[in-house]
């Protein structure tokens, strides 16, 4: 399979700190795949994401994006190919209204206004925000703001989308909608997706999962292999699904829940039944 991103021996150190935030990390991203990168807070996964977009000047190693080696001379060309969504929905909303924000990336690329108008409109429609085009960010929910951020990326048609904990500040419903939208955009726009995440559902969407710990790549596996680890998932920096957390808490109190995987509704049903029996 063709590689769209190749990372070789990447290291990064913040300021004068002794411990490197990234330590000799090498991996490839295949064109069109969905790659999840998981790890604890402070494991270096966000640093890694920012390095791919040239937002942090890494000290050693090379990053090649779509055949271009990242350097101060090529950084703006590389950024043409990558769209990035960050964690806080408010802190990446630049424009005064939805429309203005979607247009921001196009304005930076000096697209003419005649070209911009249809592209902005199409991008807003693509993410299902056409009823909100004139709205100001303060009247939008976190999930809606992240959709607008996605529209801003759709408008500039990159080939890679990086989600840097983009769903971590959303409520469960907003998170679900966002992931569904990313899946749709990935199909429609033939995007390669890299998602940095704690969220198990987001990681489950991936074709491949990389586990980072203490600035180093410690594991590479398919979601099925990773999820087979059960409660050890927490050690990798992933949040357990709510039902798994509940089961663990019940076990601690000496209540034996069913061991097979359960959805939220099944768990609720089981809880109701066992509670009414006593």
């Amino acid at each position: 399979m063709e590689n769209i991103i190749e990372v070789k021996h990447l290291s990064y150190r913040y300021g004068k700190e002794q411990r490197p935030a990234l330590n000799d990390v090498s991996f490839d991203v295949h064109r069109g795949e969905w790659l999840a990168i998981v790890g604890h807070n402070g494991s270096g996964k966000s640093t890694l994401a920012k390095s791919l977009d040239g937002l942090l000047p890494f000290t050693e190693g090379t990053v090649t994006v779509d055949g271009l080696e990242l350097s101060p001379a090529t950084v703006w060309q590389v950024r043409e190919k990558i769209g990035m969504i960050f964690q806080n929905p408010d802190n990446q909303f630049v424009g005064a209204t939805v429309e203005d924000d979607v247009a921001f990336g196009l304005e930076n690329r000096q697209v003419t206004r005649e070209d911009m108008i249809p592209r902005v409109k199409a991008a807003i429609e693509e993410v299902g925000m056409h009823d909100f085009a004139q709205r100001e960010p303060s009247s939008l929910s976190g999930g809606q703001k992240q959709r607008v951020a996605l529209a801003g990326i759709v408008a500039i048609t990159p080939s890679i989308l990086i989600l840097d904990e983009a769903t971590s500040m959303l409520d469960p419903l907003g998170r679900h909608d966002m992931l569904e939208l990313v899946s749709k955009l990935r199909r429609d726009q033939k995007l390669t997706v890299i998602s940095i995440t704690h969220d198990i559902d987001e990681a489950a969407n991936a074709d491949r999962i990389l586990v980072i710990d203490d600035g180093q790549l410690v594991q590479e596996a398919s979601p099925a292999e990773i999820f087979a680890l059960g409660e050890k998932l927490v050690d990798l920096g992933l949040d357990l699904p709510f039902t798994a957390k509940l089961k663990a808490a019940l076990k601690k109190r000496g209540i034996e829940p069913p061991t097979n995987y359960q959805t939220m509704a099944e768990m609720e049903e089981w809880l109701w039944q066992s509670l009414s029996n006593t």
């Binding site: 920012k50 921001f104 690329r109 000096q110 500039i156």
Partner: peptide, 19 residues
């Protein structure tokens, strides 16, 4: 915000088109 703006291709205010 400045990181996000840079990631979205913002270099300076002069060389931009207007929506």
């Amino acid at each position: 915000l400045s990181t996000a703006m840079e990631a979205r291709g913002y270099q300076d205010s002069e060389h931009r088109s207007q929506y």
